[in-house]
Amino acid sequence: MTRLNLTLITALLVAVPLSLLAGRVWIDPFHPALPNATLIVLGLRLPRAVLAVTLGAGLGAAGAAMQGYLRNPLADPGLFGIAPAAALGAVLSFWLGLAAQAWALPLFALVGSGGAMALLGLIAGRSDGGVALFTLAGMMIASLAGALMSLVISLAPNAFAQSEIVTWLMGALTDRGWAEVRLALPPTLAGIVLLRLAGPGLDALVLGEATARSLGLDPRRLQALLIAGVGLTVGAGVAVAGIIGFVGLVVPHLVRPLTDRRPSRLIVPAALAGGLLLLLADSLCRLVPLVTELRLGIALSLIGAPFFLWLLLRLRRRGVRDGGLG
């Protein structure tokens, strides 16, 4: 256990209980005067906090793995087309009028991500293990899924259905409970384990594909681990919370300078930091005084984008270069 991981775990252990107290209704842990305090904490806020940490962890780990695989700091988990495909599945369940059934939306989303994973696997199996072809295939799946999603939205039966879909796509943890935790936690954990197993292969790729092969990398095994790992983490996340951007892109950047920059050493800290970031963002969503609750996806981008820009400018001033060292 590295010091960075310990610090992040400690931060999570502090942040989770705090997030249980914060919200439209504040709870004073020492004077639980509210009659439904237990219900609010255990029935509403705890599952939401667990879900935030779970999804953030999945996105952080997937982002770190994708950046490592593509050797590019701009990569994010959406690039393989798994998130758009999962979202397409979910949108289809709205279109078919099934979204009111609790099982339908997550199931459709999982089928969507599974379909994208199968397609990627098929392409990987037919290529010689090269990074470029594989990534381009993923981007094609992403744009195809995006186009189909727009088509479905434009064909929505009425304006209400349309706005329902668009709102869902913004991503949120509102009203999610233990059922969603049960659905998302096991695949996310399994996905993070698979991404961690991909670590040595990602390390070999630091020096380019030719060197990676000369170091004994099996490119197809690495692709299989990535497809399964990213598919499980991202697919589960989209199934229960819609598309939550930004975490997968930003978290690896926040954590990388604190590691030795080996991709394998980034997976676990990025997972922990992703969980922490999403938990903080979701708590903030509950606190901002708006008519309805601020959508998580919007909140993350609102806070994250300026911060990310500031970080990049600061790193540039310090002369730190990542990616494209050539």
């Binding site: 050797r71 390390d203 020096l207 380019g208 030795d260 920059r261 080996r262 991709p263 990616g323 494209g324």
Partner: peptide
């Protein structure tokens, strides 16, 4: 094997770079 145009994707330290040789 040392390829003709070696690339280094991340700004690792010399020690980390060299330790990648232990991967096999």
């Amino acid at each position: 094997y040392l390829p003709q145009t070696p690339e280094i994707a991340w700004d690792v330290s010399v020690e980390t770079l060299v330790s990648l040789g232990r991967l096999p």
